[in-house]
């Protein structure tokens, strides 16, 4: 509780400092919440370029609307903005989708030899295991991507971002009951589609 209270106080102070013109404060906010938010948006959109676009748009809007933040916690407010941007983006985006199958341009891994190949690290899992894991991951990604937008948002916020159902409700602007319904339906869909992972993942 103390930790939460400290975070809330820090969030409020940070936003207040930003509103006063403290540029460091904004950078701190981005650094603090950015990785989690980016991960959320990547799972929501399943396409990195689009996720980064949403990410930038989110913080641009955070900056614009900083003076309207009332606290206490920044995270639900931030995720709410991000979710709205993502939902709007899905509606607007062309359904003729183009994706590059090249390796990500800004990946830190060295030496991608050919398009689409994964780099194998010595001492790691053997080729077949790595390929199997990659295949499974993709199945999971696809299963999540195929969920309706609000179900997907609920799942990612609750499961991956570890928000409580109450916080998810705050982000999505609906009731806890609705959140639970979305979550249940998402899990039901996934139960049909998720591959078997023997031994479980970490």
């Amino acid at each position: 509780m103390e930790q939460i209270a400290l975070t809330e106080e820090t969030d409020k102070n940070l936003m207040a400092a930003h509103c006063r013109g403290d540029s460091d404060a904004f950078g701190t906010i981005v650094q603090r919440y950015g990785p989690g938010l980016l991960g959320y948006l990547k799972k929501m959109s399943n396409e990195n370029g689009q996720a980064e676009d949403f990410f930038q748009e989110t913080f641009a809007r955070v900056h614009q609307k900083a003076s309207t933040f009332r606290g206490p916690r920044l995270k639900p407010w931030l995720y709410r903005i991000a979710t709205n941007i993502a939902m709007d983006g899905f509606r607007k985006n062309s359904r003729l989708k183009f994706v590059s199958l090249n390796r990500q341009a800004d990946s830190d891994d060295a030496n991608p030899q050919e398009s689409g190949e994964r780099v194998l690290v010595d001492g790691g899992p053997g080729p077949s295991e790595a390929a199997q894991t990659a295949e499974t991951k993709e199945q999971v990604q696809r299963a999540i991507a195929d969920l309706p937008d609000r179900q997907r948002a609920t799942l990612v916020l609750a499961y991956y971002q570890r928000l409580s159902y109450k916080q998810v409700a705050e982000v999505l602007g609906c009731s806890v009951g609705t959140v639970k319904t979305h979550m249940f339906r998402a899990l039901k869909s996934l139960a049909r589609r998720l591959p078997d992972v023997s031994g479980g993942a970490a």
Binding site: P35, G36, L38, L41, K43, T133, V140, V197
Partner: peptide, 16 residues
């Protein structure tokens, strides 16, 4: 066990 497959994506956080 089935839902543990979701954890395959847990490390895919967005490194800035």
């Amino acid at each position: 066990n089935k839902f543990s497959a979701l954890d395959l994506l847990r490390d895919d956080e967005g490194a800035l």
